[in-house]
Amino acid sequence: MNMANSQPGSMMTNTLGKAASQQMSREVTVSAQDVKVYYGDTQAIKGINLDIYRNEVIAFIGPSGCGKSTFLRVLNRMNDTIDGCRVEGKVTLDGEDIYDKSLDVVLLRARVGMVFQKPNPFPKSIFENIAYGPRLHGLASSKTDLEGIVESSLKRAGLWNEVKDRLDQPGTGLSGGQQQRLCIARTIAVSPEMILMDEPCSALDPIATAKVEELISELSREYTIAIVTHSMQQAARVSHRTAYFHLGDLIEVNATDKVFTQPEHELTEAYITGRFG
């Protein structure tokens, strides 16, 4: 396993990796080793090992409270903002330990973006929402540069045509689905390498959901995406691989069609056949 540190990109031997039947590069971008998370005295995650490959969409599924969202937040250290939360084990991004003391969490989050369950645009204009990240990180060298970033981010999020005439209006005035795509555009504007999505469609209606899912497939060409979802259909539609979590354990991870047709573990089977959830 520690090969991940020395030789990123040569993880073909990984047992979990074998299952990935996509015709993409098998370069590991994130590798979690024996990750444990505690909230105060309760253990939320009990030692998870998982590799995530570049430019894949991986879905985390499992019943409520199984730790899938917690694990997602481990990957860009959003857990740091929660009082009393403690992470053990090792997580590397391109071979770099992201829990290392010398690592700058600001830099990490610029590389690993996040989209949240509820659309949460800032109470600012649409333009300011997108420009927020680039401004923070000094990514634009001029005003035109910044406008370019905003435009391309909105275009890539498929929102440009809908909002190009009202960039100066508040982002909170958009519909729920538009807001969520705005939030995705906001994340893209920082050009992260990876995007974490925490149930991005749970607050949306079916049409808006379809649009966001379409967007996810589109984005998977350029970005590595990890998505937590409650909907097995959604996982089946958008992801290449699926990981099943149960009570803080990673039970099974495999190519999505394999997980849904021939699950290896009986717990996975029980879950996907709807015996609990």
Binding site: V106, L107, R109, A110, G113, M114, F116, N120, G133, L136
Partner: peptide
């Protein structure tokens, strides 16, 4: 709301940037 703080921190803002901006 906390979600606004999360959004800002998730984009890589420091705490003070989140507060001020």
């Amino acid at each position: 709301p906390r979600s606004l703080r999360d959004a800002s921190m998730g984009l890589g803002a420091t705490r003070s940037e989140t507060i001020r901006r």
